[in-house]
Amino acid sequence: MRLPNTEVTFLGAKAMAASRLSRGELINGWLFMAPAIVLVGIFLIFPILWSLWMSFQVGRGMNFTFGGFANIVRLTQDPVFQRALGNTILFFVVQVPIMLTLAALMAVALNDPSLRFRGLFRTAIFLPCVASLVAYSALFKSMFADAGLINNALLSLGLISEPIYWIRDPFWAKVLIITAITWRWTGYNMIFYLAALQNVDRSMYEAARIDGVPAWARFVYITIPMLKPVILFTSVTSTIGTLQLFDEVVNITEGGPADATLTLSLYIYNLTFRFMPNFGYAATVSYVIVVAVAILSLAQFYIARDRRKS
């Protein structure tokens, strides 16, 4: 998941420069790696390159002709693509910060050793990670039905005066998707924060507490800086996850209403399997995700490295 420490890798490579492996070990080593190398070559390296090549091709089905940058030009003129891109960006810009803030707050609360029922709370908050994406989407779809549970609850609490059409209203459909993803992934991210908090020196908190530093200030000035690498890691993985959002939007809103929850992944799927197949253009859209993910990964790598130097 996380990019490794390159310094270590390079040192390792240097130490190995004069290989001390015997001939037998060399042969065995490559034999052990061979199945993985062959499979990665066939099912990862080849397709990603082919996809790049495809993105410069135009035509229906398997009838390709070279189209140069035609597909990229088409991206700029395709309102559906721009819709999908806009939705995808909106999902991660709004959802990732909400989820990570919640996850960090939960982790800090649960990290207090004097808290009772810690195990119980932790298990409960982690539980959503166990549900498959399709299964929990089905649950959310039924809970948020027009005359369903959530509307009943909100109406009887007097929070709303008429039912919200969660699935049929463009705005509320987005809210619903964001709520659903937040439910599913907050506990997952919390686990990373908890693991990181366990490495933080407790005496620092004690000293700050004795000096009369209030809880919120301890959180802002001690906890957050300590958690920086994990915050970075979780924000990048969450953003990458959101860029590939598919199962939920298909199973809760089917990308609707009127493409209000259409995501890039769903658009690629539609271009390939639902509409007249246009592999070239679909590949171009998929490369938008590749480029976004690459930029994010590089950014993570860059920030993490900077931090290590200082």
């Binding site: 998941m1 990019l3 990665v40 066939i42 099912f43 990862l44 390296i45 080849f46 397709p47 990603i48 082919w50 996809s51 495809m54 398997m62 990458i240 860029l243 590939q244 598919f246 890039l264 992944s265 690629i268 799927y269 390939t272 592999f279 679909a282 590949a283 998929s286 490369y287 995700i289 590749v290 993910v293 990964s297």
Partner: peptide, 17 residues
């Protein structure tokens, strides 16, 4: 380097293969 290649980008070539 290829750790975070999104599946969406592999989907079409993999389907054809």
């Amino acid at each position: 380097l290829m750790l975070s290649i999104p599946f969406s980008a592999l989907m079409i070539p993999l389907f054809i293969m």
